[in-house]
Amino acid sequence: MATKKFLYVNRKAPHGSIYAQESLEVVLIAAAFEQDVSLAFVDDGVYQLLQNQDTGALGSKNFSPTYKALGDYDVSKIYVEQESLEMRGLGKDDLMPLVYEDEDDDWAEKDSIHVVSSSELADIIEQQDVILNF
């Protein structure tokens, strides 16, 4: 099977609707097919990556720690739009650290999150074969 470039675009806040959790599940399932997967977090989607989310008091499942498993699933290209962060009073330090181990570099631990400008993200979108929206 030829490898295709898949981009998952996440634009919804994590707990107000089911989109974020569904997207994460689909990404993990699709990762089993060893495609070239990238994730983009735009608009309220950037809230999905905030640190220290704890849904204990809401009685709903806390799926926030699952983002940290993305590296194990070889999902290592995570793009966050700078403009979306700034508009919301956020910076990269507010996001949870996400890492992967680089097989081609003696399993060195590397940062998966790339904060990119709108125009950089526009280029990334152009390069994809398949784009899925959540």
Binding site: L28, A32, K61, P65, Y73
Partner: peptide
């Protein structure tokens, strides 16, 4: 730690 059971490859 991650709130999921890993796929067999993982």
């Amino acid at each position: 730690e991650y709130q999921i059971a890993p796929a067999v490859r993982v």
